[in-house]
């Protein structure tokens, strides 16, 4: 079990990061939502393996919660928004795709360097993976900063949240259930609010390109 568990956790954690980086590569908004669903599955797998390994019922419930919200409800909600304008592609991102992939590589390296002390605190197999969570956060942030369309930015925000969740699973076998519950509900709320906001934006301005909004400051 232990060997299989380690292998699964390695695979799933790497998958979370890989999906985040893939998000930087894809420009089709609907493809981004699909990637987000995939990331939710991988994250739930990490939580589930950690729960089985630690015989932790709370973590098991968390895994189910993650599966339902991050691989289910949220992608479905975002998918509905994405379907409103079919074929919506990200125009030119602020930084082009090859360049952002190179930056992502640098960010992963930074995460590994910055995460090393975390591993030194408690040298186990799973804390060695903690830099992956950090790297996911940074990749999500890069997505958030470089994309022009609001929906892509929401995806970036959710990738950041997934990265934080991954870090907590790997470092401390998850935070208490109540905290996780609160965090998840927060994400859900953000998605619902932003969905309403995007609907309004589309009705008012005919698009959801955030670059057109710079006149709104004071």
């Amino acid at each position: 079990m232990s060997g299989l568990g380690d292998g699964l956790i390695d695979l799933a954690a790497v998958a979370v990061l890989a999906v985040a980086v893939a998000g930087l590569w894809r420009r089709d908004v609907r493809a981004l939502v699909g990637l987000l669903r995939l990331q939710g599955w991988a994250l739930a797998l990490v939580a589930a393996v950690a729960a089985v390994r630690g015989r932790d019922v709370g973590l098991g419930v968390t895994a189910v919660l993650v599966l339902v919200v991050k691989a289910g409800v949220v992608p479905v909600l975002l998918g509905r928004v994405a379907r409103r304008d079919p074929g919506a592609r990200e125009g030119a991102p602020l930084i082009n795709v090859p360049a952002s992939l190179v930056i992502a590589a640098a960010l992963v390296a930074l995460a590994v360097v910055a995460g090393a002390p975390l591993h030194a605190l408690d040298p186990t197999a799973s804390t060695a993976l903690a830099p992956l969570g950090l790297a996911t956060v940074l990749a999500g942030y890069l997505l958030l900063v470089t994309r022009r369309r609001a929906l892509s930015q929401v995806v970036g925000l959710l990738v950041i949240d997934n990265g934080i969740a991954l870090t907590t699973f790997l470092l401390t076998s998850g935070v208490p259930l109540i905290v996780e519950l609160g965090g998840t509900l927060d994400v859900l709320l953000v998605v619902v609010v932003i969905r309403a906001l995007l609907g309004t934006m589309r009705a008012r301005f005919g698009g959801i390109d955030l670059d057109g909004l710079s006149e709104l400051r004071d």
Partner: peptide
């Protein structure tokens, strides 16, 4: 007024903290 610039400020700040820690 650019949302991206505001987000980039946060991102750069995070990176600086990480570099300073690492």
């Amino acid at each position: 007024g650019s949302v991206h610039r505001y987000l980039a400020y946060g991102f750069v700040a995070l990176l600086i903290v990480l570099v300073a820690l690492g």
